[in-house]
């Protein structure tokens, strides 16, 4: 029996912060407060432990170890004092899955109307996975997918279904 197309793992202990602001005015302050460069449109910047994703023209998503969340929120609020902005903890609102393996792209191709082959190395794509919203970017050996917490079981199911051994998309 062949192997599954990819391994699906639920990523735990991630903190997430939604930041809404006018980047033209507050971008530098945000970057400094979170310690990451401001991502370009539809990109994500990252260091060893944190990532900062572009979600919308006035929205960023900071992903970091959960223990650093409160500190990061405080730092952001401090940095954005006097600036019209919204900094809010969304760590508990999300379910995160890592899709890793030689055919990880095939797994996503079964779920999303997106050409992931063409996704830049630092690209972040918001789309849908089957019938639910998702944001997807590259990690070592595959992709990370975030969706809503309430649909975690559904996401886990459709991701695992898509990894069915022998179902890779290359012509047979």
């Amino acid at each position: 029996m062949a192997d599954a197309l990819a391994t699906i793992t639920r990523a735990e202990n991630l903190g997430m912060v939604t930041i809404r602001a006018d980047f033209a005015r507050a971008g530098d302050a945000i970057a400094e407060a979170v310690g990451l460069a401001l991502p370009d449109v539809t990109r994500i910047t990252t260091d060893d432990s944190r990532s900062l994703g572009w979600m919308s023209p006035d929205e960023l998503l900071l992903i970091l170890p959960v223990s650093e969340t409160a500190g990061a929120i405080a730092a952001l609020e401090q940095a954005l004092t006097g600036e019209h902005s919204l900094v809010v903890n969304v760590s508990d609102a999300r379910a995160v899955f890592d899709v890793v393996g030689p055919h990880a792209t095939d797994v996503l191709a079964k779920l999303s109307p997106v050409d992931f082959v063409e996704l830049p190395q630092d690209g972040l794509r918001r789309t849908r996975a089957a019938q639910t919203a998702a944001a997807i970017w590259r990690i070592d050996g595959g992709f990370r997918l975030i969706g809503f917490r309430s649909t975690a079981d559904y996401l886990g199911l459709i991701l695992n279904n898509a990894t069915l051994a022998g179902s890779q998309l290359a012509p047979r």
Partner: peptide, 15 residues
């Protein structure tokens, strides 16, 4: 296709 059984539609669950 896959949209049958538990995957028929997303079932949202509270904590």
């Amino acid at each position: 296709a896959d949209a049958r059984g538990d995957a028929f539609q997303p079932l949202r669950k509270t904590p």
